[in-house]
Simulated scan of single mutants.
Amino acid sequence: MTTPVQIPAQRQEPPGHQGWMEPVPDCGEETYRGSGRLAGKKALITGADSGIGRAVAIAYAREGADVAIAYLNEDADAEATAALVEEAGQRSLLLPGDLAEPGLAAELVQRTVDELGGLDVLVCNAAYQMAHESIAEVSDEEWDRTFDVNIGAMFRLVKAALPHLREGSAIIGSSSVNSDAPNPTLAPYAATKAAIANFCASLAQELGPRGIRVNSVAPGPVWTPLIPSSFPEEKVEGFGSDTPLGRAAQPAELAPAYVLLASDEASYMSGARVAVTGGRPIL
């Protein structure tokens, strides 16, 4: 059982940096133990510099996968993730860039294929959010950016990846408990997370005949750089304490769901939305 960690009030400017957080999130650096479940696979993970993306990158590498680490501009966080992938004996590839730029998706996929030798698992995890008390505070530019990064980029990445994905490949989207129970202060973000779950369900039906599985993971509150960089500091204090388990998740607690969905053990799992919410129901 994980002991609840008190999260104090704090604030960072977007996109946030993991090393500046108090406490620093646990991404499984000291705890995740692999068993070869992804041996030989090549994965592209967006938002892999920190938080859930870093935890997934660590877990995938320790399960035997090479990992392409896509991220915005948090070089120190991304380099730390790459070092952890390489310590596990796997190849890493650093891919900085803004997913809101329409041409980036194809570049990320092509570089992954060229430099890692293929693509078996696509994890669309990067996200943008900002909290507002009123929708009137959300600018048109912020609305568009939220959709471009969260769901538009996934659309473009999937299109670019499909020519390279073989039977047995997997696509995983990061949805959210907000897809089912939207927080009114996160209206644009919540809408994109519902779109991700819906998009994954559509893709699972389309791509099933090709043997490509598509699923989404719906996290509840998770202690990542997104939190102190998008909420007022007084809202960060005690983050996640209102869940039935009484605490926020650590990113390491999300990684096993992503490992399962990428592995051959999940060969009949497609079209699912896997809830990792600390007891908040998704039915």
Rank of each mutant, 00 (worst) to 15 (best):
P251I: 07
V276N: 05
G278T: 11
S270D: 06
E253V: 09
A255S: 04
A272L: 13
V259T: 05
A248G: 15
S270Q: 07
R273I: 14
G271V: 11
S267I: 05
A266M: 07
L260F: 15
L260S: 00
P251R: 02
A248H: 14
A262H: 04
G246N: 08
P244S: 09
P256F: 06
E265V: 04
Y268F: 14
T277E: 07
T277F: 01
S263L: 05
D264V: 12
S267F: 10
L254E: 08
Q250C: 03
R273M: 14
A252R: 06
V276E: 07
A272V: 14
A272F: 07
L261R: 10
G278L: 10
V274P: 03
Y268I: 04
V274D: 01
V276Q: 04
Y268R: 08
A248I: 10
A262Q: 01
A255C: 03
E265Y: 03
L245V: 15
L261P: 00
Q250S: 02
L261E: 01
L245C: 14
E253C: 05
G246T: 13
S270N: 13
V274E: 07
L254K: 08
G278I: 12
R273G: 00
S263N: 02
M269T: 07
Y258L: 01
V274C: 04
R280H: 10
S270P: 08
D264P: 12
D264E: 15
L260P: 00
G278D: 14
G278C: 12
A252D: 02
A252Y: 03
A248C: 14
A262Y: 02
G271Q: 09
V276M: 09
S263A: 09
V259C: 05
T277H: 04
G279V: 14
A248L: 09
L245W: 15
P244G: 11
E265P: 02
S263V: 06
L245I: 15
S267Y: 10
R280E: 09
M269P: 01
R247H: 15
Y258A: 00
E265H: 08
Q250P: 03
L245N: 15
E253R: 08
G246D: 12
P256T: 03
E253I: 05
A272W: 11
G279H: 14
D264W: 12
R273D: 15
A257R: 10
P256Q: 02
L254N: 01
A275D: 13
A266Q: 01
L260Y: 13
P256E: 04
P251K: 01
A266S: 13
P251M: 02
P251H: 00
A249P: 05
P256A: 05
R247E: 13
R247K: 14
S267W: 13
A252K: 06
R247D: 09
A257P: 04
S267M: 01
V274S: 03
G279R: 12
R247C: 09
Q250T: 02
V276R: 04
A248Q: 11
A248Y: 11
E265L: 05
E265G: 08
A255G: 00
P244M: 11
Y258V: 00
E253Q: 12
T277C: 04
M269K: 00
T277L: 05
R247N: 09
L254H: 02
R280P: 03
L261Y: 04
A257I: 05
A249S: 15
T277I: 07
E265T: 03
V259D: 01
Y258H: 00
L245A: 14
A272S: 12
A249H: 11
